[in-house]
Nucleic acid binder design. Sequence first.
RNA 1: CCAGUCGGCCGGGCGGCCGCUCCGGGUCUCGAAAGAGGCGCGGGGAGGAAAGUCCGGGCUCCACGGAAAGACGGUGCCGGAUAACGCCCGGCGAGGGCGACCUCAGGGACAGUGCCACAGAAAACAGACCGCCUCGGUCCGGACGGCGUUCGCGUCGUCCCGUCCGCAAGGGUGGAAGCGGUGGCCGCAAGGGCAUCGGUUCGAUCGAGGUCAGGGUGAAAAGGUGGGGUAAGAGCCCACCGCGGACCCGGCAACGGGGACGGCACGGCAAACCCCACCGGGAGCAAGACCGAAUAGGGGCGGCGCGGGCUCGAAAGAGUUCCGGUCUUUUCCGGACCAGUCGCCCGGGUUGGUUGCGCGAGGCGUCCAGCAAUGGGCGUCCCAGACGAAUGGCCGCCACGUGGGGGAAACCCCGCCAUACAGAACCCGGCUUACAGGCCGACUGGCCCU
RNA 2: UGGGGCGUCGCCAAGUGGUAAGGCAGGGGAUUUUGAUUCCCCCAUCCGCAGGUUCGAAUCCUGCCGCCCCAU
Length: 143
Amino acid sequence: MDRLKKRAEFLAVARGVRSPRHAFVLQAALAPDPAAAPRCGFTVTKKVGNAVVRNRIRRRLREAVRLQSDALGRAGCDHVLIGRREALSQPFATLAADLVSAFRQAHKRLPAPPSTVGASLRVDGPDPAAPRHPRGETPGRTR
RNA sequence: CCAGUCGGCCGGGCGGCCGCUCCGGGUCUCGAAAGAGGCGCGGGGAGGAAAGUCCGGGCUCCACGGAAAGACGGUGCCGGAUAACGCCCGGCGAGGGCGACCUCAGGGACAGUGCCACAGAAAACAGACCGCCUCGGUCCGGACGGCGUUCGCGUCGUCCCGUCCGCAAGGGUGGAAGCGGUGGCCGCAAGGGCAUCGGUUCGAUCGAGGUCAGGGUGAAAAGGUGGGGUAAGAGCCCACCGCGGACCCGGCAACGGGGACGGCACGGCAAACCCCACCGGGAGCAAGACCGAAUAGGGGCGGCGCGGGCUCGAAAGAGUUCCGGUCUUUUCCGGACCAGUCGCCCGGGUUGGUUGCGCGAGGCGUCCAGCAAUGGGCGUCCCAGACGAAUGGCCGCCACGUGGGGGAAACCCCGCCAUACAGAACCCGGCUUACAGGCCGACUGGCCCU
RNA sequence: UGGGGCGUCGCCAAGUGGUAAGGCAGGGGAUUUUGAUUCCCCCAUCCGCAGGUUCGAAUCCUGCCGCCCCAU
């Protein structure tokens, strides 16, 4: 699963659906390109702990996503995992199970993407599609 | 053995499966090439503090004719060492500890300014005040009335006067005790008591002088203690201690030792301003350099073309500079240019990419110089380079710690979600701070044994 | 990466070398039939922490800790 890296992408996903668990909060939203591979980003804020703690949490989450990617992927979806303190102490198996359930829940809540792209995106504009407009329009705006 | 001081070091090990990143070479695909991507192989991949960002340097850009002064900031015993430092090493001084050892921003207070609350007579230099001592002056009442009387006077009240305290209102006070002479009174006498004069001692007060011994205070008060001495006292004199100190000796120096002599004069604070000496140009790898698509817009050159009006002309078109804008500093005159399109070139800039960016004041070993910090020689090694940011996830065994159980012991079994502080971001030298547990060395004090 | 500021009672805060104002809150009391108002009294000595200078430190110096802000 590819990584999200741009701040604008994170902001876009933050407007989507949320699915909280003990060790993390999952955010998900439709990507501008419905056929694109699923992508995922990680956020661990400074409140959680020092650099060592934050690194460890991100690495555990990343490893869990890697191992479960078959069960989690869905084309045209962007995800952000916000790490919490429990991600450090929770058993890895539990963490992985939570991850799967969170992804399923989030995907269920998202509108069906492909084929109907144009219509559905335009219709519920304010919801998950709206934040992606800026990105989608950036080429037109800046270039 | 117990207690302690100092210095140095480690900060888990081995292995399996699945991943991440960098490098090398292999192979496959795409491509004319440059190159891009895929697959598998081999190798590298966090720290002693990577942290805090408190100092110092390298490196890069900017500024500057070379510097220096001023301002500002920093440092501050002496010497050494270093690229440099506020770090480090050695020494000195002061303080603490029985000791090993530890702590100290530790130059200048006769360049100047300032501060020293409260208390205290006084807070910085020399006195004032209280007190002590010597000398000198003054020490006194008057009028009226009441009462008592030994008829000398005593006492009380009012007024006046003197004097002291007090801003004033007002208050206090009008010497005491001996000695001698004279006068008069009482008494038979011894004697008593009164007035006055002289003089003595004490006291009060004023003035002049001596003095700093003393003055409950305070962090700090005139060198301390003892003796002599004096009117009272005082380094006034003496002894010891303390202080200053020409000069001599040792030391590169800080400083140390001795010390004629001075006779105590010189309080503390500069982490108060300040003075003196020395150091510092500014910014920081988001420094800086290079590449640079599409789109929009800018500038330059060249080609073609020229908005409205007017004149000529049948028209095509030609002419005119009348009208618009820009420039020529402004106004007038004059002049030049512009309007649209095509091509080429240039620079700026958004997003992005590459670089800086890993051979270094480098690590390890060894030898030499030096007490040491450190320096030098030789050999050997190449050892992280990410950028929403790699070094991870899940296990097994072992080591160590700790708790429980078994055992005579060696040891065995089980448990601890036991194993700290903490993650490179241009690099290096320090400092500071955090840290489970452990190892090594040197030394000190005490007890015991030989 | 560079720069600046703050930390004093539960809250807001004054004090910048001489022993910590004030307000709100809280507690006790008085006034009142009761309540409100009003009045009186009480409430920090660990001034973020640790050292140092000084006779004396919230204040001056050094080192830490925490928080906030600014520039890029």
